[in-house]
Structures are given as C-alpha cells and as structure tokens.
Simulated assay, not measured.
Amino acid sequence: MKECIRTKGYHGAHVVRRDGRGLIARLCACMAPALLAAALVPAHGDHDAAAAGCRTDDHGIQLTADVSGESPHFTSIQFLNVSTGRAAGNGFMLGTSDGGCRWQSIYKGKLTFAQMDFVTNSLGYVLARTAPDGPAMLLRTANGGASYKPVPNGGHRLARIDFRTALEGFGYAFNDSGAYYTADAGAKWSKLPTPPNTRGAQFFSPKEGWAVALVPGGYQVKRTTDGGRTWTTRLTAASAAGAGGAVYGANSRDVWILLYGGSGMSQTSYSLFHTKDGGASWEQVVSNATAGGGPAPGPVAKAGKLPGPPGRPSDLATPDPRAAYLLTGSGAMDNLSLGRTQNGGKTWRNSAAVPGFEGKLSFPSAKSGWLAVTSLTGSAVYATRDGGATWSKTFAIAVD
C-alpha cells in the first residue's frame, strides 16, 4: 500500500510517498564486514572512459521507508578521493569505488546518518540517530561502515564533527556554540573556549581557530592562535538580522566566512567573505540581498554587483584555497542552485544545478564533486567533473 508522508528536517512542507512493501537491499546483504571495506578500495583505470556504461537508477538496491515511516532519502555524502565515496540517509549507507559508476549497499538498519567523517577507507566516525527527533549519537566504524560502536562524547550534544586523524578530532555543539577537542578517539574531550554568542566556529588545530559571534548591530569574525584563550576580531559586518554564520577553509589562514541575514518569502539574505592572509585583508565575494530577507550582512553592495545563487545556503565546499562551491535551495522551489569560483573569489558564477530542495556537497578536488539531494521526485546523487558546470546522475531513489 502506498501512502503520503512529510519529510522531516527540510525547509518547506514537501510531501513524498513511500512504498510499504517492505523491500530490503539486495546487494552485499550477506558480505562480511571485512569484504565490505575491501570492496571500497579505489578502482584503477579511467573513470570517465567507463562512465558511458554507468547506471543512473537505483543500481538494483531497493530501499524502503525507515522505522518512522519516512521515505528513503539522502542526508549525508563524503568522498575521500575522486573514486571512493559514500552516500547515506535514513536507514542506509551506500558506497562506490569508481566515482559513482557502480554503487553497493554497505549498511541497512535503524540509523539515520546526519554526518559521515571517514579518515580512511575503513575507519570513520558518524553522527547518527535512531529516532527523527532524537539526539545524534557519535559512533565509530572500523569496517567501512558495516557496523558501529558508540564513542564517548563527554555528555555534549554534538551537531557536527571534524576528525583530522583516527585519534584527533573536533566536535561542535548546536549552532557551533561550543567547541571540543579529543586526542584519543573520544575517550576524553577538552573544551575549547569560544567568544560569547558564538554562532559558527571552526578549529584547524588545537591552537588555531575561527568563530562568528553575534554582537549588537551585526557580527564579529574572530581568530585565535592559542586554543581559544584569546580572540582577535578580524572582520566586522553590520546586519539588521543576525541568524548565524559558518566558517570553511583548507587551513587557518585561508578561510571563507558565510554570514546570514534575514529570511522571508522563502528567501534568505547572506554574504560570503574570503581571506588568504589570516584576516589581514578580506574580499566580499557575495552580497545577496533579497526582498524577503532584506540587506545582506556587511558593506552594502550595488544591486546585482555581487549576487549569489538564490535561496538559502544549504552547503559549502572548499576543496582548496582557490575553489569554493556554494549550494542553495528553497522550500518554495524544487531547484537547487550552485555558486562557484576557482580563483579565490575574483570571479563568481551562479547557475542552476539539479532538481531538489535540500542537498549536501562533497568535493575531493577542485574539479570533481558529488551532490546528494532530495527533491519532490525522489532523492539522488549527482557527479561533476568540470567544477560544477554540469552534473550527471549516478544514483536515484524514486518516489512512487
């Protein structure tokens, strides 16, 4: 029997349908964990040459509604390199070793994956939950994602993780209001002090980090080089409505700062800033004011001079200091857009990307990237080999 349900955790009230036949994933269901990890060893040969014979459907992997009744959809994606990657959602994880030409089932169960953070092909950490509104658990896998063990999180409700090695990693609380560090795979966590009213943070080492703080009249972007004991303001941006921000970058000197303004009429105003010298100088790459959201944070740009892709920012990827990819979507539109630069923000291009209202990016290199999306017609994974100019579908979960 088919029935309609609402997807949770997305902007807008989108309705999708699920198939109640209770089908299970066929591929790799009986593979031993060691074989699952081995199956994701990067394949040799030219992927583009083989792409002509690649499938764009469900690859024979039949996914069904999760334990809460939600239709299967992607919630996380991560590629370690241009060949090896994983895409996961509510109750499943898939893997590929040839850039998405072939996908296989790695996990099927009760976990809904909010974030994957694999440091090797076998060893990884995830934030996952077993109930739609339940807390995210920090889990560790040593067999490529087939099974998981709980990791102590010090009692902190982590909303984001960033593991740099098998042992060393960072955890961030809701809105990045608290930052924590572990050097022993989560056995112990130490708090990294952040400024008052922090609404976005990123540490690149136990000493070096950035934070976006709300202050009267807007934002202050601050940097620390002593583990959070002292913070220096590197950027001030006026904003009539402060809704938070985010920090991205390849290292502590070259960072991208995303600041949110107001929202309204399915529109969000936002700005994107870039520094290459630790905050000594900045370039405002995007100043996206909207009728519904009002002025964008920061200096007022001439109308149409620094436009970003329409909608609310959904994800941003910075594979190297020169490249940045900004994905946006809207609850009122089933169409994701992408803004991109490959020269550090000197030039910026916006274009329609793929159908969808929510998505996640993974760019292991400046040219090769993957995009997991949920749309009104289903959920899918797309790939680009030209830096986001064009996208091709590599996996699809249809909505019946």
Rank of each mutant, 00 (worst) to 15 (best):
T225R: 15
Y260L: 15
P355F: 14
R17H: 08
I161D: 04
L35S: 11
S105Y: 00
K207P: 06
W210G: 00
G245P: 03
C101L: 11
V221Y: 04
Q78E: 15
L63F: 06
S68T: 05
S379I: 01
E208I: 00
L316M: 15
A43Q: 12
D334Q: 13
P319R: 00
N90D: 10
T275I: 04
R164M: 13
A323L: 01
G134R: 11
G264T: 13
N81V: 02
H73T: 01
N143D: 15
L259I: 04
Y248K: 13
R340D: 00
Q104M: 13
R17G: 10
I24F: 06
G228R: 03
Y325R: 12
G388I: 14
A383H: 05
S177W: 03
M93G: 06
A250R: 15
S337F: 14
L158I: 07
L192N: 03
F363H: 04
A211N: 06
T194W: 08
L63S: 09
N81E: 12
G60Q: 02
Y148G: 05
A87C: 12
A142K: 01
T390P: 12
G308C: 08
F174G: 01
T7Y: 10
S147C: 05
L35G: 15
D117L: 12
G45R: 01
P297Y: 07
G145I: 02
E168D: 14
H14D: 10
G155P: 12
S314T: 06
V285A: 11
Y270I: 04
S177T: 06
G388V: 15
T120L: 09
G228A: 15
W370E: 02
P355Y: 10
R18W: 13
G304S: 14
G388N: 10
A372Q: 07
I24K: 11
T341R: 14
V300T: 08
T194R: 07
V255F: 07
I77K: 02
K276M: 13
Y172I: 09
D226K: 06
K302F: 05
T230L: 09
L167S: 14
L326G: 07
N121A: 10
A296T: 10
A34D: 06
G124Y: 03
M333Q: 14
A52H: 08
Y382H: 08
F363L: 06
W370Q: 10
R102I: 05
R253V: 02
A352H: 08
R253T: 13
L214E: 15
F357A: 10
P195T: 15
G378I: 09
R322F: 05
S314V: 07
T377Y: 11
D315W: 07
F74P: 09
A142R: 00
F204M: 12
S351T: 09
D48Y: 01
A146Y: 05
G171N: 04
A187R: 15
L63P: 01
Q62R: 14
P193F: 05
A43F: 04
F395Y: 14
K367Y: 00
A389Y: 09
A52D: 05
A183L: 08
T390I: 08
G279W: 01
K305A: 13
A383C: 14
